Amino acid sequence: MVIETERLVLRRFRMDDVAPLSAYRSDPDVARYQSWAAPYSLDKARYSVQTMIAADPGMPGWFQWAVELAASKTLIGDVGVNLADNLRQAEIGYTLAPALQGKGYATEAVHAILGHLFTVQGLHRVSAECDARNTRSARLLDKLGFTREGLRRQHTWIKNEWTDDLLFGLLADDWPSSPPVPR
Rank of each mutant, 00 (worst) to 15 (best):
I3S: 02
T5R: 01
R7C: 08
A19G: 06
Y24C: 05
R25Y: 02
S26L: 09
P28T: 14
A31S: 08
P39F: 12
D43I: 06
K44Y: 02
K44A: 10
A45D: 10
R46A: 13
Y47E: 15
I53M: 06
I53G: 04
A54Q: 15
D56K: 11
P57K: 12
P57M: 05
A66Y: 02
A70M: 05
S72L: 13
I76T: 03
G77A: 01
D78Q: 11
V79A: 01
A84S: 12
Q89Y: 07
A97S: 03
Q101E: 04
Q101K: 03
G115I: 10
G115M: 07
F118Y: 07
H124Y: 14
R125A: 08
A128C: 12
E129M: 12
A132V: 10
R133S: 15
T135P: 02
R139E: 11
L140I: 13
K143M: 06
K143I: 12
L144G: 04
G145M: 12
T147D: 08
R148M: 06
G150W: 11
R153Y: 00
R153I: 02
Q154F: 01
T156I: 15
D165W: 00
D165G: 04
G169L: 13
L170N: 03
A172H: 15
D173E: 15
D174Y: 14
W175R: 11
P182W: 10
